[in-house]
Structure formats: C-alpha cells, structure tokens
Design a protein around this nucleic acid. Structure first.
Lengths: 192, 192
DNA sequence: GTCTATACGAGGATAGAC
DNA sequence: GTCTATCCTCGTATAGAC
C-alpha cells in the first residue's frame, strides 16, 4: 500500500494524529510538519478541515469494511472470526491508535454535520456486520443467544471501544485485551 | 447543593462543557459567557486551564465516590445495586452529559501529567468499588462468576462508557441503555 | 473580586509568485 | 503543486485600575 501522492500522505498522517489526539487538538500545522510541506499546501488538497476529516472517515469506513470482509471470507469458525474482529481493535492499540470513530464519537458535539453523518454510517455498518456474525454462531450452536444479536453486537462494540480508551488511562494498559476483553469473550461466547 | 461562590459556579459550568465537548474544545471564553463574568476573572480563581481541569476531576472523583457509597449503604440487593450503578451513567446521558473521565480518556494524549494522574485514580477507584460489589453478589450466589470480578468490573466500565459515547452517534441514541445495556446486564448477571 | 486593556502565539484560511 | 506572505480570529495569560 504505497502512497506516492501527497493527498494520501496527508490523509495517512492526519489519521494517526486524530486517532491519538482527537479532532479539536489536531491542526494543519501538525500535519505540515510531519509531511514535510507547508500549511498552505494542504489547503490545495483539502480546502478545509471538514473536507479532510470527512474524507478520513470515508476511507476508514472502507478499510473497516474490507477488514470485516476478509474475516468473513476466511471461512474460519465463528468463534475465530469473533476473535479476529476483536483483534482489529487490539492491533490498533499496539500502535497506540484508538479507533478513529471512537475518538470522533467523543468529539461528536463539535463536529460538522457532514462528518457526524459519516460516523453514524460507520457504526451502523459495523454493528450490522457483527450482528450477522453472531447470528451465524447462533445458528451453528457455537454459542447461546440469550439476548438478541443486535444487542450483543452493540454491546461488544461499546466494550471494545471503551477498552481502547481505558487502556491509556488504566493501570494494565495495553494488556487490557489479554486481561479483560479475551476472558470476557471466552466467558460469554464459549462453545456450548 | 447551592453555589453562592464564583469558583464553584465556574467549576459547574466548566464540567458541563468538558463533558460535552472535551478538553481541547472548551475555552475560558465559553465559561465566561455562561457564568456572566469576564475571561480575566476566571484566571483569578484558576490561574491556568490545568489548575481548573485538575480540580474538576478531583471534584468529580469525590462525587462518584459519594454516589457509590450511597448505593452501597442502601443495602439493596446486589443486582439492584448493579442497576443503580449503571443508572449513574444513564442519568448523565439524559442530560446529554458523558462521564467526565470518559471524555478526558479520549483527550488523554494532550493532557498535562497532573490531570492524567487524577484520571487514573478515578478509574482505579471506580473499578475497585465495582469489583467489590460483584464479589458480594458472587458470594451471595446472586450471579455466577465465571471470570474474575476484576475483569468483569473493568469490562462493565468499558461497556458503560462505550455505550455513552455510542449513544450520540448511534441510531438508537439515548435508548441504548434500555435496548442494550440493561438486557446485557440481565443476561450476564441474572439471578441464579 | 471583577473589570478593561493588552500582549502573544496558534489555528484556519486566502492571494499571488514561482 | 508548493511556496511566501499575510489576514483575521480565537485562546491563554498578565498588568493594573477600580
């Protein structure tokens, strides 16, 4: 995944910054410094902050959709697919990156409408995909569905994002996935 | 809980703003407008943003500790105490307020060290209290402990905070507690 | 304690040269 | 496409009068 064009380099750098510091605390100056160009040059590619971040979320959605698709196409067992999904969040954390949309969810109140809309789509898509996976495991009697799969899907997403945020301010830090997330998944979605 | 003194009024207003917009997106100008004084006057009470927010988290910790203590002293059944704890998060949401420390956890990377430390204490205290409650329910055979209470406590806090953030960007919005959190609690911590 | 006035830098954005 | 130069606004903070 090379990026010889400047626009994509800007997006990559911007994503890193937003996933670490949030929407309000990142600036064109930060990007310019890391990319090695001037602030004004960024405005050529992205007229305003809103354009940039909107594109950022769009790309992030596509990446997430592809990652989920890859998991689904692996034809692995449902419980392994669930683990692979959780690992998406843990792997980001290993590079000190929070889910882009988790960060933007915290900044939601200050975001332009067009960006809010993109984020809603992200969560809707992700929850739908996960609910479908949970249903598959349900049908295959891999785990028991005492609640609806939609509820469980939302709950899992909430927990995974909460775990990412906690990892930076809790004592166990990055180990929160090993110490908390995986054991809980194991307990709730154990093979029957 | 009256507040005849300016310092407390500033803190109250600041808390509302931070819990809605986060650390980076709030300013002395915002507070000044809502309190009805000038920016400079705020600096008299709180020399810098760091002083103000540090005090904010300290007070928030105390409030949370008192709320938890009230729940514990109620001598209600463990499952009702757990529900009361979850309601702390839902009630905040009803006023469109996210947990202060959940918002600051997202802003963690840009916070001064002294504030980061306060937040760590908050999560540690909260997790400790909740783990103790879970243990009580465990001992009383109210629910089953397939994982350790420390893991469950952290998982619950992660989910509750994730649910608060999701509530603003998910379709079900405020109803996320009725539709997701409570059913999941019921499923996992059902009476045996 | 609160005010006015002010300093200073940072952030977003544009114009125009190259 | 990228640069320099510049504009304007906002945010934090201080000095000094009342």
């Amino acid at each position: 995944m090379e990026n010889n064009n400047t626009a994509q380099t800007i997006l990559n750098v911007a994503q890193d910054i937003v996933r670490n510091r949030g929407y309000s605390a990142f600036s064109y100056a930060d990007i310019a410094k890391q990319v090695g160009i001037r602030k004004a040059s960024i405005h050529y590619h992205f007229p305003g902050k809103e354009d940039l971040v909107k594109k950022l979320v769009e790309q992030y959605r596509e990446g997430m959709a592809k990652a989920c698709d890859r998991i689904a196409r692996s034809n692995a067992k449902p419980q392994d697919q669930l683990l692979a999904f959780a690992n998406l969040y843990r792997n980001g954390l290993a590079e000190h990156k929070i889910c882009l949309c988790a960060m933007l969810a915290a900044d939601f109140a200050v975001l332009p409408d067009s960006i809010q809309a993109e984020i809603r789509v992200f969560f809707q898509d992700t929850a739908t995909w996960l609910a479908s996976l949970l249903q598959t495991g349900c049908d295959a009697k891999v785990w028991d569905c005492s609640t609806t799969v939609e509820q469980d899907a939302q709950g899992l997403i909430a927990m995974l994002q909460g775990a990412q945020l906690l990892s930076r301010s809790a004592i166990n830090g990055d180990a929160i996935f090993e110490q908390m997330v995986y054991p809980l998944l194991q307990a709730k979605f154990a093979q029957v």
